[in-house]
Amino acid sequence: MGRRWIAYRTLAGKEIHRFLRIWPQTLLPPLVTTSLYFLIFGALMGPRIGPMAGFSYIDYIVPGIVLMAVINHSYANVVSSFFSAKFQRHIEEMLVAPMPNWVILAGYLTGGILRGMTIGALVLTVATLFTDLRPTNPLLALAIALMTSLLFALAGFINAIFANSFDDISIIPNFVLTPLVYLGGVFYSVQLLPEPWHRLSLANPILYMVNAFRYGFLGVADVDIEVAFLLVGGLIVVLSLWAWWLLRRGVGIKH
């Protein structure tokens, strides 16, 4: 077995073990929160809101809520873990070792993706208590969920590289990510919005991910699915190169 593979497996295993070990902090809260979403918006308010794009309201919001959980937790896992490694300085264990930068990046991303996808699967399981929704195109749904998870794990990594304090790792999730997710068509179809809000919504990249994922379940979307895949793929390439370059330059981790 190659040394790089062993190094990758060690780091990825450590990251996965970390979020499993602290499951009451990492896995349980999103289940409680999303159960409340399903209960309040789906079961209690849904029948009063009526159908959306030809589907019951709870069926319409389930894919968006699942992807919201994937986005938040892929990001949170990497940003908190990598910043903590910087803060406690155990990032030095990796920097002194013969680990290529891409192995370090891949290890952290694996942890983020695994946590995001695990929580996505758990939230989807909870959703079955409220609806019998089944994906019409499971492969497409899985592909966009994986790509979205990777994208936000990368974003979390870059945030952690620039962060100098614990405040710095909460600013982006609270003031950028959360508004973009909530305005990204999780709870409504952007077709319902008047101008200029409809046009403005189209500038939100999360709208494309939510709609592509919803398309995998319902077969309907507010945006072109090919554009959504191209956009997410393009952003993954850009953020991957940026993260790798930052590691290579030692930004935030080396003097």
């Binding site: 040394r3 450590k14 300085r89 264990e93």
Partner: peptide, 29 residues
């Protein structure tokens, strides 16, 4: 390297810290 300041993960177990470091150097488990 044995650095001047403590720089291991304070939440990990002693054995795990040593095992992980071996893994980073590509030593089979």
């Amino acid at each position: 390297l044995v650095p001047q300041e403590i720089n291991f993960n304070q939440f990990e177990k002693v054995g795990q810290i040593v095992l992980n470091q071996a893994g980073y150097y590509g030593v089979p488990r």
